[in-house]
Amino acid sequence: MTPKQKAEALVEKFAGKQLEILNKSAVDAFFEVEKEIAIECAKIDVNNIITELQTIQDRINLERKGVNYLESNLIYWSEVKQELEKL
């Protein structure tokens, strides 16, 4: 999944939960506000993932096996965050 696809999936995940609660007319009236809320929720989620990966990376020896995996995940989630900013 590309960072852009992941960003869109996260927004849909959060927006979907809110849309289930609202009726159709309310959804039409509040769609843009709901999307902004979903984007902000997804950004909080991604920020938490990035923070956790940075913490792990800081604690391990950079020579150990597995560091590349953490670095690539950190880059991936940073790109997801950038895609959320574009939405």
Rank of each mutant, 00 (worst) to 15 (best):
1 M>K: 15
1 M>E: 15
2 T>K: 12
2 T>A: 14
2 T>G: 13
4 K>F: 12
4 K>M: 14
5 Q>P: 01
5 Q>F: 08
6 K>Y: 13
6 K>W: 12
7 A>M: 12
7 A>N: 11
7 A>C: 14
7 A>F: 09
8 E>D: 15
8 E>M: 13
9 A>D: 13
9 A>L: 14
9 A>I: 09
10 L>S: 04
10 L>M: 10
12 E>M: 15
12 E>N: 15
13 K>Y: 15
14 F>D: 13
14 F>R: 12
14 F>G: 11
19 L>W: 00
21 I>P: 02
21 I>G: 01
22 L>R: 10
22 L>Q: 09
25 S>Q: 01
25 S>F: 00
26 A>L: 06
26 A>M: 09
27 V>S: 05
28 D>Q: 08
31 F>N: 08
31 F>Q: 12
31 F>E: 08
32 E>P: 00
32 E>G: 02
34 E>H: 04
34 E>G: 05
34 E>P: 00
35 K>G: 01
36 E>N: 12
37 I>V: 06
37 I>S: 02
37 I>M: 04
37 I>H: 07
38 A>P: 03
40 E>T: 09
40 E>P: 00
40 E>S: 10
43 K>F: 01
43 K>E: 11
44 I>A: 13
44 I>E: 10
44 I>Q: 11
45 D>R: 11
46 V>M: 03
46 V>T: 02
46 V>Q: 01
46 V>L: 01
47 N>K: 14
47 N>W: 07
47 N>A: 15
48 N>S: 10
48 N>D: 13
49 I>Q: 05
50 I>E: 07
50 I>N: 04
50 I>L: 08
51 T>W: 03
51 T>P: 00
51 T>N: 12
52 E>Y: 11
52 E>R: 13
52 E>N: 11
53 L>P: 00
54 Q>P: 00
56 I>L: 11
56 I>Y: 05
57 Q>P: 00
57 Q>N: 10
57 Q>S: 13
58 D>K: 09
59 R>L: 08
59 R>N: 12
60 I>S: 07
60 I>K: 05
60 I>D: 03
62 L>H: 14
62 L>K: 15
62 L>W: 04
63 E>I: 01
64 R>Y: 11
65 K>D: 12
66 G>I: 02
66 G>F: 06
66 G>P: 04
67 V>E: 06
67 V>W: 01
67 V>P: 00
68 N>C: 09
69 Y>E: 14
69 Y>K: 13
69 Y>M: 13
71 E>F: 02
71 E>R: 13
71 E>Q: 10
73 N>E: 11
74 L>D: 05
75 I>H: 06
75 I>F: 06
76 Y>W: 05
77 W>A: 05
78 S>I: 02
78 S>P: 00
79 E>R: 09
79 E>K: 13
82 Q>H: 06
82 Q>Y: 06
82 Q>T: 07
82 Q>C: 03
84 L>S: 03
85 E>I: 05
85 E>W: 00
86 K>R: 10
